[in-house]
Design a protein around this nucleic acid. Sequence first.
DNA 1: GCCAATGCTGAGAATACGCTTAAAAGATTG
DNA 2: CAATCTTTTAAGCGTATTCTCAGCATTGGC
Lengths: 226, 226
Amino acid sequence: MMATILVVDDDPKLLNMLQRTLALEGFRVLTAPDGTAALAQVQAHHPDVIILDWLMPGLNGIGVIKQLRAVDDKTLILMLTARDAIEDRVEGLETGADDYLVKPFAPAELVARLHALLRRPAIASQSDPLTYADLYLHPVTRETRRGQRSFELTRKEFDLLHYLMRHPRQVLRREQILQDVWGYDFEGADNVLEVYIGYLRKKTEAGGEPRLIHTVRAVGYVLREE
Amino acid sequence: MMATILVVDDDPKLLNMLQRTLALEGFRVLTAPDGTAALAQVQAHHPDVIILDWLMPGLNGIGVIKQLRAVDDKTLILMLTARDAIEDRVEGLETGADDYLVKPFAPAELVARLHALLRRPAIASQSDPLTYADLYLHPVTRETRRGQRSFELTRKEFDLLHYLMRHPRQVLRREQILQDVWGYDFEGADNVLEVYIGYLRKKTEAGGEPRLIHTVRAVGYVLREE
DNA sequence: GCCAATGCTGAGAATACGCTTAAAAGATTG
DNA sequence: CAATCTTTTAAGCGTATTCTCAGCATTGGC
């Protein structure tokens, strides 16, 4: 399975070089010139790893990490910086970066680190139960509950809810959901997604609980308390 | 106390599979694709056991052992190899490996060897009888009971039930079960698993007891009271 | 309030999945 | 080396799940 890497740096030269190098290594590569664009990319494409420059105009690396972690986004982050002072390194890792690389670096080193990151057992986070509001979903036991009331889901229903719960409060576009949960490019006009949203709503609101899965007209859906 | 295992192999597939299996067994897992990376991992994380492939590009298994033992590192080593020639086995052990396993192997076998190597807490837990609900299984005497009613199992049936009982309440995916109970290179494509689940159910419910082995459609099976 | 555009729902068709059964293939044992 | 036990393969069948489609409901712009 091909991993997606988002490279965030304000230096077009470096961006270009990394783009080519990583593509050559078999990664799918996205780029962003600053922190704000990076956040948009993350929301839109959910990359596996973000390579993040520390120093950027506008929203800098640390800012990006803080924003991501604030919404509980756990995307792997590899921090890149020209400074090599120990305190920076510490701050970077403490803020929530998963690895750290000092410029200038050899592309091979970067690639090695990337592979190491991707191999790192996401297992811990993958097997932890997810909660949002009074929704509960356990990836390992596949138990699903709304408050005290537990309910059964089919595979697709489970996958979809799992997906929504991994991105709470984020507005997810229909194509994105279809791609990530169904795994194919959305073509023509079929409405599987609507149907499944319907199924999920029926089950998550069977006890008269307030709606958590909201429609964002012309865009997609959000898991949100309201 | 959770033991840390370092797996060193150049086959990403095997690496991946061992990663999942060992994590499922409660080990912390590190990986390295070659000897050099392995040495770095050892230095950085001091694993309790190293699972080491004999044949690797660059620094091979024997080389790793030699280097480690040269600096008086006594980390336990379990050697893995496709060759089964006696002289290799001898060389492997003489160079300083602590145990030896020939590919292809069933992951369950590997796990057993690991526990044996780690002796301390493991032996106890490995030879202790397992129970779940009113099911009873003794790994050593191979006695199996449902409440007061004891029943006989064939080897595969026993292995499968043993596996399920080591992971109660967890939904185990079919591929995972096949891999761990039948062996990682099992390709005989079909429905052995279903058949064996059928056998086990027949035997565990022969006295009209409620079902404990449940199907999770499109995913796998769980051992669970319901 | 009207009308496109968009989303929801119910019903049925198509499909995927798992269970059973039986028999073949492989081991094991006396 | 035959008899028996174990493991695997294969096919058929029932049913849960997934998908499609058509019509209805809702939304927001005008």
